[in-house]
């Protein structure tokens, strides 16, 4: 049986903006794999995601991506939605994400305007739109923020289903329990890789 295709290989990467804030770090991400990125605040977890997409300065090392790899990225940056008449279904449609698999309570109110949903519901929809967008590699930055325990559990299942569908997932989180439950492998910034 052949090993899953490597979609992303990071080797000795040092990255930052004005000065390096990250690295050197090395890891790989294969198709169908979920890799967690952990480390204390300021260790460069989000900078690493930015570097993978060419939005941070690379001071050393290299990033190799499989040809024609399509990335999806979820971040904490969400614009204010007060007064904007966009509903949940329209939000998901923007990234061509399907609503199938949403938690039942959220699926029931996906036709509501975003400004009539709770902050946690909006966060989950935003996250879902990026997670389920057509992509080979999905990058998630602190996806459990603002989610309740049921939402976190549902998210872990959704990540596994997405990986089983062939995507590679790289998950940045400060939530060690979530990473341990959801990921195949952890990369500690400034430390060694751990198998989960």
């Amino acid at each position: 049986m052949s090993a899953p295709a490597t979609m992303l290989a990071v080797c000795g990467l040092t990255a930052g903006y004005v000065v390096p804030v990250l690295g050197p770090v090395s890891f790989t991400l294969a198709r169908g794999e979920i890799v967690g990125l952990c480390g204390p605040n300021g260790s460069g977890k989000s900078t690493l995601l930015a570097a993978l997409l060419g939005n941070a300065r690379i001071f050393g090392g290299e990033i190799n991506k499989a040809p024609d790899t399509v990335f999806s990225l979820q971040t904490q940056r969400q614009p204010p939605v007060a007064g904007v008449p966009l509903n949940g279904a329209e939000l998901l449609a923007l990234t061509a994400a399907a609503a199938d698999g949403l938690p039942p309570a959220l699926a029931a109110c996906v036709g509501r305007r975003l400004d009539r949903l709770s902050g946690g519901q909006r966060q989950f929809l935003h996250l879902w739109a990026c997670l389920q967008a057509p992509a080979d590699v999905v990058l998630l930055d602190e996806p459990t923020n603002n989610l309740d325990p049921d939402g976190v559990a549902h998210l872990a299942g959704a990540l596994r289903a997405r990986a089983a569908g062939g995507a590679g997932l790289l998950v940045v989180s400060h939530d060690a329990a979530f990473l341990a439950a959801a990921c195949d492998r952890l990369v500690r910034l400034g430390g060694n890789d751990d198998a989960v």
């Binding site: 999806s72 990225l73 979820q74 940056r77 614009p79 923007l94 935003h126 967008a133």
Partner: peptide, 17 residues
Amino acid sequence: SRRLLLSHFFPDYFRAV
């Protein structure tokens, strides 16, 4: 239209794609 909405609601995703 779609790109305007996408760049507003998902600016980081929009750049990533």
